[in-house]
Design a protein around this nucleic acid. Structure first.
Lengths: 106, 106
DNA sequence: GCAAGATATGTCGAGTCCGACATAATGCAA
DNA sequence: TTGCATTATGTCGGACTCGACATATCTTGC
């Protein structure tokens, strides 16, 4: 997989416009990045609504505060797997995850 | 994460009824298994429609026939990450992935 | 029933991702 | 400001997933 080689990309802020084109990402690569960001946002929202701190949430899912911070930051060291597990842990359904994953930027 | 310890579960066939309850999986765990299976099915469908053998598809995405077989079998050694990348590689959109992931068994 | 193509299963070294820890930055009430 | 809670960033050892290879088990046409 070609994407593998270019893995450690900055997760980017999208401060103005799509950073994807700027960085020369393929359609597949940018779809992956967008998915990660979309799930990140969903996770932060849900954790907030649940009134949990990152540390409290980390304890609840058997992880650490730093990793939760990275999840929510869309850090490239965080897999979609982990994000999805975390979402399920805050009560998201399979359907919720599917929607979150497909949702476009605000 | 508690799921971690019980990781290497058989991916199960669901020959009759939900194997999830039988195996004593938590809601979260079975949601993950179901997602993996749902993506597996979507991948096999799309590859079929594209008229590709597992080997041909593997070459196309820079992987191996055996791993593609495992992807389609819902093997626990295959991450959701990989399945999603594979789906994108056969032309699925982010939306397609979201739908596939949420779709219930036939 | 055989052969050949396709798919499935088992294993392994290499590289990735995870939780943990340390520490820095940010926020926010007193 | 100062102090305390929360969130962000950097780094590691070890667990996990990857592609690859070997081999076994289907399929399908003959």
């Amino acid at each position: 997989m070609d994407a593998k080689k270019r893995r450690r990309l900055e997760s980017a802020d999208f401060a103005v416009g799509s950073a994807a084109e700027f960085l020369g990402l393929s359609a597949e690569e940018s779809a992956l990045v967008e998915m990660r960001l979309a799930l990140s946002r969903a996770l932060r929202e849900r954790r907030g609504e649940a009134g949990l701190t990152q540390a409290a949430f980390a304890r609840r899912i058997g992880s650490s505060q730093s990793r939760v911070a990275k999840m929510e930051a869309g850090d490239p060291s965080v897999s979609l797997d982990l994000l999805i597990r975390a979402l399920l842990a805050v009560g998201a359904s399979r359907r919720d995850v599917g929607q979150a994953l497909a949702r476009r930027m605000a």
